[in-house]
Amino acid sequence: MAVDDWIWQLDESIPSRTGEGKRILEAVLHQLEAENWFPHEIFGVHLAMEEALVNAIKHGNRFDDAKRVQVVCKLSPEKFFLKICDEGTGFRLEEVPDCTEDENLEKASGRGIMLMRNFMSRVEYNSSGNCVTMEKIRGQKTA
């Protein structure tokens, strides 16, 4: 298996504040633009990362400043890798309603996860549901 040739990496533990998440998100978007990723690919990464950060800060750590969010980002010429972990109690993926079912269209939950899965090439959660790992393969058709 080929070793990923990372050209940029970031590994930070941030407090549970949306402004902190925004700072890292902007750093990632800047790198993708510098590497000439297509605008629709950058849009997808932007959306997925925004959703994952909000999930960690708001739903995971509940804006608790005493809790941290660990963010790992890696960029290679071929792909973008992201891992976000919070200190919350996690959730069970199978209990999240399918937001595209008619009876769930107006419900509050599930849309963020649905968007991440559509805009990224791979999205996985750990067993306790407080860590999400995702990848976007450059040039691969997603949403």
């Binding site: 849009f43 932007h46 959306l47 925004e50 959703e51 909000v54 107006e106 509050a108 849309r111 963020g112 968007l115």
Partner: peptide
């Protein structure tokens, strides 16, 4: 140019 699922949630509340 950009919105997230949080914004969609507010729009759904508005629709209701």
């Amino acid at each position: 140019e950009f919105l997230s699922s949080e914004t969609l949630g507010e729009l759904i509340k508005l629709e209701k």
